[in-house]
Simulated scan of single mutants.
Amino acid sequence: MDQCIKCPEDQYANAEQNHCLYKDVTFLAFGDPLGMTLSCVALGLSAFTILVLGIFVKHQDTPIVKANNLTLSYILLISLIFCFLCSLLFIGHPNSVTCILQQITYGVLFTVAVSTVLAKTVTVVWAFKVTTPGRRMKWFLVSGVPNYIIPICTIIQIILCAIWLGTSPPSVDIDSHSEHGHIIIVCNKGSVTAFYSVLGYLGSLALGSFTVAFLARNLPDTFNEAKFLTFSMLLFCSVWVTFLPVYHSTKGKVMVAVEVFSILASSAGLLGCIFVPKCYIILVRPGRNSLQKVEVLYLSLICN
């Protein structure tokens, strides 16, 4: 007791308090059961999204694909593929590069995906509202004006991310005190204000898409995907609203796993709600994938 020595930061005292042991380094690794499970889910969902994209490409001349804006569908599917894959950045030993790429990549990719849903929703509303007799705004659809929503929304998010990187970017954080005998390596968000600004902007886009789709939910059912868009945005918002309290109540690799799960769940919600019903009709119920020639031509003109 006269020669008591405190253990270094990377070590802790044994039970007898007479020797220092090295702490175990902890992070969400690919070899961990949790990390391996999340990795397999991410790869499986991305492969499934590629399969859905292939189905849409193969059946691109069918009415149900044409009537739901082929270009926007392609953009949304490709962005979802990268959304699933970007979750892999959160798994493995954190470093300065991956810490920056984690937040910026998923922020921009999800902005592209949600803004595409917003563009699809606006297209559905205009297709059934402004093209009715007496309206002269059909050129908005023919000229592809709703498609400009995607680059505009994405540029705003990129500016927010650039401000984040310029003020206080994410970095590696080493926590040697939260868990006894462990050194936790995670990515620090850097500027908390910038992080919530990026997340809040994404949430506002999702809320806007949900609002527009909800108002259009009772439009004619023929090839109207407003109901699917409404449910997808409701699921998306629910996942991220649940994410915030759970995220702040966990630590270490469990906290990272919660963020990865939220990314996968929200992306899977968009994929399942918007595209799975269409693939079901294309593959299982092809008889429903037909309309009279006049209706097909009309929907093709206003949605492509």
Rank of each mutant, 00 (worst) to 15 (best):
Y298L: 00
Y74T: 09
F223R: 03
Q60Y: 10
S96C: 04
G269T: 09
L207H: 07
C153P: 03
D32W: 02
M137Y: 06
F90E: 02
T230E: 11
A194C: 13
V57K: 12
I55Y: 04
V241E: 00
S168M: 07
L85V: 07
S115K: 14
R136Q: 13
G287P: 03
Y148E: 09
K129L: 06
G92K: 05
F195L: 15
E295N: 03
L202R: 00
P277E: 11
I159A: 14
T154I: 13
C83V: 01
I174T: 01
S46C: 10
V65Y: 07
K129C: 10
F56K: 08
I81Y: 00
F214H: 01
Y12C: 07
V284H: 09
T116E: 01
V246R: 00
F231H: 06
N304R: 10
L244W: 04
K227Q: 05
Q157M: 09
I274N: 13
C40S: 12
Y22F: 12
A213N: 01
L38M: 04
T211I: 15
F82M: 04
V112C: 07
A29V: 02
A113D: 06
K227F: 03
P33A: 07
P169H: 06
L77R: 02
Q103F: 10
W126E: 04
F56C: 13
E9H: 09
I55W: 04
C40N: 06
F231C: 09
V276R: 04
L165Q: 01
F231I: 14
T230K: 08
L215A: 13
K23A: 07
A113T: 14
H180L: 14
T154F: 14
A162S: 14
S115H: 02
F228T: 03
R135D: 10
D61Y: 08
N68K: 05
L299Q: 12
Y148S: 13
K58M: 10
I152F: 15
V239C: 02
C237L: 13
I75K: 03
G166V: 05
L53R: 00
D2R: 07
S168E: 11
K293S: 08
T105S: 15
W164T: 02
R217A: 07
G181Q: 12
Q157N: 01
L215C: 12
I81V: 12
Q103M: 01
S266H: 09
C279V: 15
I282H: 11
H180D: 14
K227W: 06
C99L: 09
M137W: 13
N224Q: 04
A119H: 11
A194V: 11
A119V: 14
I263A: 10
K120G: 11
L244Y: 03
L51E: 02
S197N: 06
P245Y: 10
C161G: 06
M1C: 08
I100W: 02
V192S: 00
S87M: 05
S168L: 08
S290D: 04
T250C: 12
A226W: 03
T121N: 04
A257C: 07
S115V: 12
Q102H: 05
Y106T: 11
K253R: 13
L141A: 02
L85P: 06
K129R: 15
T49F: 08
A194I: 05
E179C: 03
G200S: 03
V186W: 02
T98N: 10
N68G: 06
L301K: 14
V112H: 14
L207A: 15
T211A: 15
G92H: 05
F214I: 00
H248K: 12
L80E: 07
F84M: 05
Y106M: 12
L34G: 03
S290P: 03
I156L: 15
